[in-house]
Amino acid sequence: MTQDTLPSAHPAIPPRRIGVLIANLGTPDGTDYWSMRRYLNEFLSDKRVIDLPSWKWQPILQGIILTKRPFTSGANYKTIWNTEANESPLMTITKEQVAALRDRAAGLWGDRVMVEFCMRYGNPSTEAVVDRMVKAGCDRILFLPLYPQYAGATSATANDQFFRALMKQVWQPAARTVAPYFDRPDYIAALAGSVTRALNGRVPRKLVASYHGMPKRYLMQGDPYHCQCQKTSRLLREALGWPEGVIDTSFQSVFGREEWLKPYTVEHVAELARQGITEIAVISPAFSSDCIETLEEIQGEIREAFGHAGGKEFTYIPCLNADPDHIDVLTTIITENLGGWI
């Protein structure tokens, strides 16, 4: 049935399209107390992130953490905030990535494919963007979380939110999610290229591959994140043709009192300096976009820990962001996952 043959009282039906929905972690709307509190409340209330029983965790979160942490987090965000656009760097970079992917999609498929982005926490929300895509005629949606390595607290919670959004649709689109791509040769090649360019082809004493952290308990429960991070580091070293021992894998952003995946980056870089390794480079292969963890934590706290322990030269290698090699990888992933749909 076409629009021309619909009964006069029938709701309008938009032309059929395929949607590609890119998902990133999220960002506060501003650096003020209430913007930070709303964002942190959503993030830290996620059971995939903090899996403590609500009766135990929520009084701590609402009564203690969200009273103080929005001030310190807001101050940290202010140091990296894109004041011209009044948004976080993560938002700016995600927009650049999606703009580049839209250009690629238009060249490949014309207006048949709609490329949008959402944030797991904050705005634009997954629910709002899914609703907009369905209203625009997307009867099939490919969901791509921007996490190379799978983790319950990143990839899985993004997928959870996507499916929750689908549950609210009267006419639910068909849906696919993209598998982790931590060991794809083209992704590893893009990482290696970024290292080579940043270091002008030289081999550092140490390249620290710093991944976002998670409680060790999650690994023991079967989360594959730790193993996938280790494999990414190994494949990166092999792609660069470096000897064993040049790349170290570590984990950052520790939260709470329980043991997290080790070594902790902030402690590891200080230990390297104390051992006499005073020149290091740091890369963040778990992040597709530079964000508070890379721009403030790595280039602030972690860099300072290295310097205070005697380190001299600290090189941060940016995330792949909107680099053409990265856009090539994402375009190929999208094309492969649209197989049979277009």
Rank of each mutant, 00 (worst) to 15 (best):
S73V: 14
A151R: 03
V49Q: 08
R37F: 05
Q97P: 01
Y77M: 13
D139W: 04
A99R: 13
W34H: 09
N76Y: 06
P28N: 09
V115N: 05
N82L: 05
N41D: 06
D46Q: 02
S73T: 15
G122Q: 05
P59M: 05
D103F: 00
A23G: 11
D51K: 06
A158E: 02
G107V: 09
M36R: 10
P89A: 11
T79K: 15
E116I: 06
I64V: 15
A136V: 06
V115K: 01
N82H: 10
K135T: 11
M133G: 08
L21W: 07
I22P: 02
P89D: 08
M119T: 00
A151H: 00
E42H: 01
K95E: 01
K56H: 07
P89R: 09
T72K: 11
T31A: 08
W34E: 15
P28I: 10
G30L: 03
I141K: 07
L40P: 10
W55Q: 14
I50P: 00
G30Q: 05
W34T: 13
T67M: 09
I64Y: 12
N24P: 00
Q149E: 12
W57T: 07
A136K: 08
I93G: 05
L108R: 12
L21D: 12
K56W: 11
L40E: 02
C138M: 13
F43K: 04
N76F: 04
R38S: 14
T157P: 01
V134F: 03
Y147C: 04
L40T: 06
L146C: 08
W34K: 13
A158G: 04
F117G: 09
A136W: 04
Y77I: 06
Y150K: 14
Y33E: 03
S54R: 15
S54E: 10
P89F: 04
E87Q: 15
F71E: 12
R38P: 12
T154C: 09
G110S: 11
L61Y: 04
R112W: 02
Q149N: 09
Q97H: 02
T154W: 04
A156K: 14
E87W: 06
A158W: 01
G26I: 00
M91S: 03
L21I: 13
L146D: 03
R140A: 10
A136E: 15
R69I: 08
F71M: 11
Q62M: 05
C138S: 14
